[in-house]
């Protein structure tokens, strides 16, 4: 079963009959099975699901951070099957951004340095100016030299947002971006995320159990029994 909305444009991300099993003692546990998905450029897709449904596993697979047990996955038109871990890393470089539930900021780096980090892998002129610019856009222009521990949770997640978009990524994965934040702060982060996504014309795939967040996306899918099910708009509103 494939979940897609358009057929006339090539998907930026395409999963075909994806499966993931893990060893659990003597038996194999199936987390995802026969899962298909196509995400098109500029789309925002939310994947909803209960705790333990395998949302993060799916995100890891889609981003090429993990390998599936079966099925085919294509990212930017290239099959991931033929690539080793380094190959997948190279494919991601500069084109994929991430926002994590636990922010994943490096504690010894300042806000500015954290945002600069992905740019420094393939330096280009004006990297620092770009990092400053993105931090200003998320409202942290005055907090450039602050270490993560000097920032609140919401501020840390805004740094992470700036870091996800600073490379000009075509595709941003977000894993429960508001999971560690209070509702008000979470709301602000959602606002910031979608506004940046709009400005940059990025494709967004986010995993969440927050219906308010999912509602902001073009499409919502529910992960159920290892498969993705397209959700009706009213179902999401519920």
């Amino acid at each position: 079963m494939s979940v897609s909305s358009r057929t006339h444009v090539s998907p930026i991300l395409h999963a075909d009959h994806l499966a993931k099993e893990v060893e659990s003692g003597e038996r194999r546990l199936s987390i995802l099975s026969d899962l298909s998905l196509a995400v098109f450029p500029g789309e925002s897709v939310a994947i909803l699901g209960q705790s333990g449904a395998g949302k993060s596993t799916l995100l890891g697979l889609l981003a090429g951070l993990d390998t599936p047990s079966g099925g085919e996955l294509t990212l930017f038109g290239q099959s991931l099957r033929a690539l080793d871990e380094d190959g997948r890393a190279s494919l991601r470089a500069g084109r994929v951004g991430f926002v994590f539930q636990n922010f994943q900021l490096l504690p010894t780096l300042t806000a500015l340095e954290n945002v600069l980090l992905p740019l420094e892998l393939s330096p280009s002129p004006g990297a620092e100016a770009r990092a400053r610019d993105w931090l200003t856009r998320v409202g942290l222009g005055e907090r450039l030299d602050h270490l993560p521990k000097q920032l609140s949770g919401g501020e840390q997640q805004r740094v992470a947002l700036a870091r996800a978009f600073v490379t000009g990524a075509e595709l941003v994965f977000a894993d429960e971006p508001t999971g560690n934040l209070d509702p008000t702060t979470g709301e602000r982060i959602i606002e910031a995320l979608f506004s940046l996504n709009r400005e940059a014309g990025t494709t967004l795939v986010l995993v969440t159990h927050d219906h308010a967040l999912a509602r902001r996306c073009d499409r919502c899918l529910r992960l159920e029994d290892g498969r993705l099910v397209e959700m009706a708009r009213d179902e999401v509103m519920a």
């Binding site: 890393a89 470089a93 500069g94 992905p118």
Partner: peptide, 19 residues
């Protein structure tokens, strides 16, 4: 131990093992 997170992040950003 302190750099495991950095290494994982850099892997996400596209750094190879050799990098």
């Amino acid at each position: 131990e302190r750099h495991l997170d950095t290494a994982a992040l850099l892997r996400c950003f596209g750094a190879t093992q050799r990098d």
